[in-house]
């Protein structure tokens, strides 16, 4: 059964006019995003001294674009507090995931192998893992 109160909410005249007013804004944003895309491509052919700085510039533009999309297309700007609250938590944790794995990467004990191509032969995996019986200790005699 449908509940009248819940389901046939008449469209608010104010809301409709508000939406109509926003359409122009969406168009401007569309051109803005296209321009930023061209900019991203363009600056990637400019050398900023090192790959790192190129990466930073590229990410800054991408973050700006992502911010615009989420703020305006996804209406995050006027969004309710409930949603902002858990999105902030999500942001904190995803940053934590990035930073802490990064830290862990930057701070290994010297001389241990992590992933480097130069650390050849540091990772030994005995063939016995694929033939379990071969390497198993004989235990029957112990008891």
């Amino acid at each position: 059964m449908m509940i009248s109160h819940d389901n046939t909410l008449p469209s608010d005249a104010n809301a409709a006019s508000h939406v109509a007013a926003s359409v122009g804004k969406y168009k401007v944003l569309f051109y803005g995003l296209l321009a930023l895309t061209v900019l991203t491509v363009g600056v990637s052919y400019v050398h900023f001294g090192s790959n790192f700085w190129n990466f930073v510039v590229g990410m800054l533009i991408a973050t700006l674009k992502a911010g615009l999309v989420s703020a305006i297309f996804m209406h995050l700007l006027g969004e309710k507090l409930t949603i902002w609250r858990f999105l902030i938590f999500t942001g904190v944790f995803v940053t934590g995931l990035f930073l802490l794995t990064l830290l862990a990467h930057k701070d290994p004990i010297p001389g241990t192998a992590h992933s480097s191509h130069s650390a050849k032969g540091n990772w030994h995996v005995a063939e016995s893992i694929s033939s379990p019986e071969k390497n198993s200790v004989s235990t029957g005699s112990a008891h």
Binding site: L100, H114, K120, G121
Partner: peptide, 25 residues
């Protein structure tokens, strides 16, 4: 990882460059 030794020889079929630590994270 690069230079993974399986049994007696370096594993040829892998391009390498990965990190087991990444999985753990």
């Amino acid at each position: 990882p690069t230079g993974l030794v399986v049994g007696q020889s370096v594993a040829q079929s892998w391009s390498g460059g990965g990190s087991p630590i990444l999985w753990q994270h």
